[in-house]
Structures are given as C-alpha cells and as structure tokens.
Design a protein around this nucleic acid. Sequence first.
DNA 1: TTGGGTTAGTAAATCGTTTTACTAAAGAAT
DNA 2: ATTCTTTAGTAAAACGATTTACTAACCCAA
Lengths: 338, 338
Amino acid sequence: MKSEKQKVSIKDIAKELGISITTVSFVINGKAKNRISDKVIKKVEDYIEKVGYRPNSSAQSLRTGKSQTIVFMAEDISDPFFSTVAKEMEGLAFKHGYRIIYCSTENKKERALELLQFFKDKDVDAFIITPPENFESETKKLIEEEKVVVLFDRHFHNLDHHYVVLDNVNSTKNAVEFLKEKGFKNIGFVGLKSNLSPMQERHQGYLEAVPHPMSLLIKFNAVGKKQGNDQLEKFLDDHPAIDAILFATNSLAIAGLRVLRKKSIQVPEQLGVATFDDRELFELHTPSISVVSQPVADLAKELIKGTLKLLGHPEDNTIRIRKSLSGTVIPRKSTERN
Amino acid sequence: MKSEKQKVSIKDIAKELGISITTVSFVINGKAKNRISDKVIKKVEDYIEKVGYRPNSSAQSLRTGKSQTIVFMAEDISDPFFSTVAKEMEGLAFKHGYRIIYCSTENKKERALELLQFFKDKDVDAFIITPPENFESETKKLIEEEKVVVLFDRHFHNLDHHYVVLDNVNSTKNAVEFLKEKGFKNIGFVGLKSNLSPMQERHQGYLEAVPHPMSLLIKFNAVGKKQGNDQLEKFLDDHPAIDAILFATNSLAIAGLRVLRKKSIQVPEQLGVATFDDRELFELHTPSISVVSQPVADLAKELIKGTLKLLGHPEDNTIRIRKSLSGTVIPRKSTERN
DNA sequence: TTGGGTTAGTAAATCGTTTTACTAAAGAAT
DNA sequence: ATTCTTTAGTAAAACGATTTACTAACCCAA
C-alpha cells in the first residue's frame, strides 16, 4: 500500500547514473555545454524526465538567495482593480520564469509589516507594494536593504524610488472637464481623508479644475458606516447648489449611492454622479454610473517590465522606474442630463 | 553609504556570544529548558532581540520539510466569496503560527497543476483546494503522496477525502421553498453545465423540490457572452409560464439580470429572481435581489480547524474532515409579489 | 620528449538551520 | 573513594542544491 512517492534528489540521480552530483547539476542548469559529453547530457535528461525530478526550491533558495518569486502586496486583493492587475502580472511574469504571490495589507501598517517580514524571510526576489498610509520610512528601509521594490498605485513624493501609478491629477481634471461638458455647473467632490498620494492628487486635480470647489473628505474606516453616511447627507444638505458629484473611489461611490437612494435623490435628474474605478456594479446600476477607468493591463505591464528590468540589472543603480498612466472616462447614464 | 544590512545567522550569534550553534538553536526553538542555564538563555534572547535576528525560512524548510504555510487554491480569489473565506482563514491560521498563501486556479486544470507543482516544490504543509473540473485523479494522487489536502466548496463523491462544503441540495430546496411561499408557482432554474459537485447538487435539489422542473444549463465559458445570453433568452421565450428564476451562481444571475433588462422584463412584477451567493451588487440592484448566502465565517473556521487537526496528527489516518454547512435565504425585493 | 591546450568530468565547500549523540563537571548517594 | 545522576553544554551530520577549483586523459605542436 505505502505508495509514499519518495522525492528524488540530485544525489539520487547521480548515484543511479553513476556520475557526480556536479555533472547532474550542470545538465539541469544548462551549464553542461563544452563540459559534459552529449551522451551523458542525454542520459541525465532522460532520467530526469522519467522520474519527474523537480529541484527542491528551499535548497535552491538557500544556496542562491533567490526564489524566482515576486510578491505583490495589494491593498486588498479582493478588490477587482487589484485582483485584475494581479492576474495580468501573473501571466507576464510566468513567461519570464517568475511566479507572483499576492496578499492584502488591508491598508494596515501592522499587517504590511508582518507580511514584509514573512516574505523577506522567504527570500522573495522583488516586492511590488501598494503601501498603506505612513509607510514611507519602512519603504525607505526596504530600499536601503538593497531589495528590489516597486510601488504601485501610490508613491511618496519625497522618496527616490520606483513606482507605477495613475496620473491622478490629470485624470481627475479630465473627469471634471467631462462633467462640465455634460452641462453640470456645480460639481462637488467626495474623497478620502488620507495622505496616500492618489487621494491627495485626486483632490488636488479637482481643486485646480473647478472655480468654486465644494469637497468632503471622509475617513477611510467611516466609509459605508453611519458616520460617513451622515457626513455625506449633511454635505448635500449644506450645499444645495451642487448638481453633480465626483467620487474619488468606488467604495465612496457605493456608499454614496446608498445615501442618495435613502434620500430619494434622482440620478441624474437631480444629481449627476461619476466615480473612479470601473466595476460591474456601476454598469448594472440603475442608472448606470459614469466612471474613470484605470488602464489595468498597461499598469500591470509596466509593473512587470520595470521589475524584471531591475532584477536583470542588479548592479545598475542608475535605473529609475517611474510611470504615470492616464485614466479614461467612460460615459454612462448617471451623467446624462435630459 | 553602503548600509547593506548584513543578514545575521545563527552562526553569527554563536560566534559573537562565544557559544555553540546548538545552544542558540535550542533557545530559539524553546528547547532550552533543563539543558541550558537561565543566564545563557537570557543572553541569547537579548542578543536576538537587539539585532533583530530572524531565521532563514528556506534553511528551516530544507531541514524540516515544513514551511508553516498553508496554500489556498481558490477558483478565483477576486470573487468576494473566496476572498472573504481567505481573509477569515488567514486570521485563524495566524494564531496557530501558520500563514496562508492564496492563488487562483480560474477553474483551469492546467493552471491548477502548475500551481500544485509550484507549491509542492515549496514544501507547503497543507493544501486547501477548490478543484477545477476533472481534477479527481490529480487530487487522488496528491492524497497518495501523503500530503494534507482539504477540498473546499466542491468534492468528489467517490473519493475518500477531506472536505468542507455547502449543503447544496438542501440549501437549494430551501430557496425553492422560499419562492413557493412567496407565491411563485412555476419556478425555473438556471445553472452551470458542469460536473462540479455544487452545480450537480444545486440542480438535483431543484429537481427534487419542484413538480414540473424547467431548467437551463449553460456552459461555464458562455456565461455573460452572446451564446449564454441567447440561450437564456430562448429559455424564457420557450417557457412563458415561468414566474420566477433561481440562478445557481452569482455570475449567472448578473448575466441574467442584463438579459432581463434588455428584454424589459420587470422584476419582480413579471418575474421573481433569486440567486446563490450574496454580493454588494445584489443589495444595491434595483430591485434588490434575494439570495442564498453562504456561511462564510463558519466555512473558513471549519477549513482551518480541520486542516490544523490533520497537521497536528500526522500519524493518525483515521481522521476524516467532512463538513456540509447550510446556506441562509436573504429575502429582498426581487421576490416580493404585489 | 616536453609542454600547452582542450575535453570531460569530479571533490568539496557552502548556504542556515535542526537534531542526535555525545562529554565534562559537579553533586548526591553508598 | 567510588559510582551514579544531573546539569550545561557541544560536535557533527543532515537537508538538497550550486559553484569554485581542481584533475586525468588525450591530442597536438615544436
């Protein structure tokens, strides 16, 4: 009964074939050219094929300090934005012999630090990180440890580092411009009270695009809760002139739509609505919601391209990965006056 | 400049403190009691604290064959159902010194096999898997290799293995019963053409609960596409008597709602709608959609409890983890006649 | 015949742990 | 004074790979 498939090691192969471990290793790693005869190479390859040998990756990592693994620390991997980026990256990385492992920081510094430790212990080759708030000094420390680290979605303005982000300022300006073209005159902004760069920049873009800004900033953990909803209600009551709202994140928009429904405010008749980040929900909503969609595939491509470039030139510290891509406005019913 | 934080190893500690590697290891692993003097223990602990020593986990895995890591191979980690389960499990596992790593099979056998290899090479301690279709023999193989494997969401009826699933038959019957109570007389069923156990069982539950069943089964990769939508339209046209539909998955329901909107069929006036799996979208939809919600937290708890039990008794092959939990019907507007 | 170059390989160190099997010294018991 | 235990520790092998520095045999030219 005991089928107990005994794992075969390089040593087993060497013994079985009556050759040295070194020879086997050379064949496995393609370093056999001009060193080992074709006959022996063939013999080893056939045997490996036959027994389905796979190198023990703990041993490899221990010896080389590399793991052919990139970790993607997303804010929340269950958010379609992050999970789609993850999936895209996975495919691209695989073609180059790398694996992606992903996880969620939930925007918590504590959690991010734990994960960082865990993956440092595992000798991952590169970190792609959406840092939580106040993660600047940790990021700096990580970079100083000579790790390959690329920030995603958000970055720190006064830290010299690699990043791939959305051009939030201009994307927001485009969204406001779009709303103006649709005939809205008093555009309000609902954002997150956060010092993360996208939140800062989206607000900034809004402020620069509108003559008389009216904005509400809600704390991250109040969104969708009573506190946040009350704030939004009050905001609307206090600013009756507002004829359209731009939400800075999809969770704000979802919470906002609930409030609007509760207050029986008709969209778009009484209030135009647009938000960042496309989601199935927005397309299916009644009315469908206009959005600023992020170029997910391109973001993923730049992330992997950049990371691989850094991994490929470990000595070259003149390389800088700094990409800022634009979003696209997708017009839907929620911004159609008349 | 070169801050290059040199990683400190157990050997460095031993040398620095003028003691043996063994002693350090004993202290680190709590095996120092009755072997090493309190003074030395303290000295080592203080030094470890001071330099922030962390064991190299590749070396540990290599030596012990364990990694304190459980892998969760979900169908799709971006599906809120799976990602919520993942998050729950993570917290529970962490308390017991285990980490969860997750990934998506996308229901593809190829992909699942790749991932399986990858994680086998990494010496993960246990596999929690939502197997794709036709993964029975691979699962069997894995079990025969003496790995700890617990299936989730779906299982194989004629394979002796560990699993945690929803009681799909009875949950479906309850949903049908609920629809009947709401006054619907001709309840149709839209499911997935799949041999995965939940799809089979939900259909079976429906067939057993209804006198004159009318069901449509759509291929997985036709859902949301033209082919699937056409099938659904035809199904509705062919069965004008149907006054309510139970969708077997949330993606079917979402695709279905799009078709109903296109055909201008009023929910719930002309057609009642209910579906499996709760989602924010269903609550926010106009009208809100009644659902069968899965006991996510309990499923996660059973998965981790079971997995840890198996990990804790590696010798005991009499243990069987076999849990089948019930879903809950959440009534909403889409099933309110009048 | 000597020396140099090539070909085909191998021995052994190393990565950082864990763990088994030892020992030396001190104290207790007879 | 001898033996027996306990205490406090250590040496060395092992896990499975990679890689540096060797060698032995052969060929060729001078």
